[in-house]
């Protein structure tokens, strides 16, 4: 169904989904990028039905779509965040953030992350009740946000359990993780509460990020591109001893007549094994 309008912008508004003619906002795959995208998309006044958001460059460009690149802006992000929190509450905002933090690979079969977030926010704005919108899983965009949010939560929860600190020479606790999603802030939050009097650092290897916590202070996220890989292997004197004790405990706690490696693997999937001393024996 093609509708030809008068002149200028409206003339190009052929409000057909399925890639006939669309404005596609390409945002950076980060919280700031997506929120700026949401802000720009709303402010552009091109009509919500004509707008899609994409988190990252598309694999294939569509012939009749116009691509608009979004530069992340802290100010615009702040505006979106304060609107979300003041109008729909903290819980709604957190769900949106968790969905945005997901590192799930984009696929053509599933709705784009940024697009799902954008449409969910639009629904919430129209309905006025964020919690109600999040429960209407019949909406594809809400379901997608729910799915992403659940995946991120699960990943974060697994890492709270399977992350292991090692004490370095200088007394700092150091942990390396390999998560799929950007869960570092969630982990840092948890461990700052748990170990307030420790200096610790969690290194997110695939994203090259680190959360650094200073004893009786807060934590900060830092770029860890230039991490000293020799320094993090120099353990303190006690470290290896406690690791051995832990391995002994781990071996002895299992009951031989109940041995069930399949169950073990189901409960702690293999991708976590490399970072846990008891299963990788490092």
């Amino acid at each position: 169904m093609w509708t030809f309008g008068g002149q200028g912008e409206t003339g190009r508004m052929c409000a057909l989904r399925g890639g006939v003619f669309m404005y596609i906002f390409i945002c950076e795959d980060s919280l700031e990028g997506i929120f700026t995208g949401v802000y720009d998309a709303c402010a552009s006044r091109l009509g919500h039905r004509n707008i899609h958001l994409a988190s990252g460059e598309p694999e294939n460009y569509e012939l009749f779509s116009e691509y608009i690149r979004v530069t992340p802006s802290a100010e615009k992000t702040q505006k979106v965040v304060s609107t979300l929190i003041s109008r729909f509450g903290r819980q709604f905002y957190e769900s949106i953030c968790q969905a945005a933090m997901s590192g799930e690979r984009r696929s053509r079969k599933k709705m784009d992350k940024a697009d799902a977030i954008y449409e969910t926010i639009l629904l919430a704005l129209a309905c006025g009740d964020g919690q109600k919108v999040l429960l209407s899983l019949g909406e594809p965009c809400v379901y997608r946000v729910f799915e992403l949010c659940r995946a991120t939560n699960r990943e974060a929860c697994q890492h709270l359990q399977f992350l292991r600190f090692s004490e370095l020479e200088n007394g700092v606790l150091f942990a390396t993780i390999h998560p799929k999603d950007h869960i570092l802030p969630l982990l840092a939050e948890h461990f700052s509460d748990r170990l307030p009097a420790e200096n610790f650092m969690i290194y997110d290897a695939p994203h090259r990020l680190a959360a650094v916590h200073k004893a009786s202070g807060g934590y900060a996220l830092a770029d860890a591109g230039e991490l000293d890989h020799d320094k993090i292997k120099r353990y303190s004197g006690d470290e290896l001893e406690y690791r051995k004790l832990w391995l002994a405990f781990f071996d002895h706690i299992a009951i031989d007549s109940r041995r069930n490696p399949a169950l073990q693997m189901q409960m702690i999937p293999k991708r976590y094994w490399a970072d846990t001393p008891e299963l990788s024996r490092f």
Partner: peptide, 8 residues
Amino acid sequence: HTFAADGR
């Protein structure tokens, strides 16, 4: 925090 060889 972890799962032993018996899956517990």
